[in-house]
Amino acid sequence: MSERSGRGPHPIPLPHPQGASPPGSRCFAATTARQAGEGEGEAVSPAGDAKKIRIATCSLAGCFGCHMSLLDIDERLFGLLELVEFDRTPLTDIKHCGPCDIGIVEGGVCNAENVHVLKEFRKNCKVLVAIGACAITGGIPALRNNLDLWDCFQEVYCYEGGLECGQIPDDPELPLPFDKVHPIYEVVKVDYFLPGCPPPADAIWKFLTDLLNGREPKLDYEMLHFD
């Protein structure tokens, strides 16, 4: 791990985006993902584990919609997995983030645990990416920022219909909620932002391929959305 941590993103080949050609003649129709990864495009690098870019992802005060959109890159995931390996993500179920090249954070900061996770990501990730409206503006959870937190809890846990002996959870293991939800850049330094609710899969793909190929990420007009 340590010998890898000194290396930044480098040019690596990726298959073409989905939709460039009809099913049947696409990248993986006749080749395996590994072959495709070595086939064409920019500078070829061996697909050995030692060269893989290590990525961690997490969702703080988010809905996992951005993660769903990441999965929505569909078959391009196979090509991506030839080039990257995952550290802590909801997919690997690894609980703590180790040294990584790229950290991708979905969701804003709404409680004390979010801050701990976010700081762990910042400490371990060379490049930290805020993905989605919540990580960038607070998003939908920030709609409660102008309401009293106690009023919110009472509304949800006590007054809402269909509850029996409603009570506000107070288990000491529950993280301390904040009175306001904040975007992650108000807590740690963020290197890149990828807006959207969620960002479209094509925007995530464009962003990741730019980053993995050592380019400054740039989205086309129709890929940049705040909604």
Partner: peptide, 13 residues
């Protein structure tokens, strides 16, 4: 090409 609001949010009432 505003990628983030950059400044701290006021969240005014």
């Amino acid at each position: 090409e505003m990628m983030s609001p950059h400044y701290n949010h006021f969240y005014p009432t």
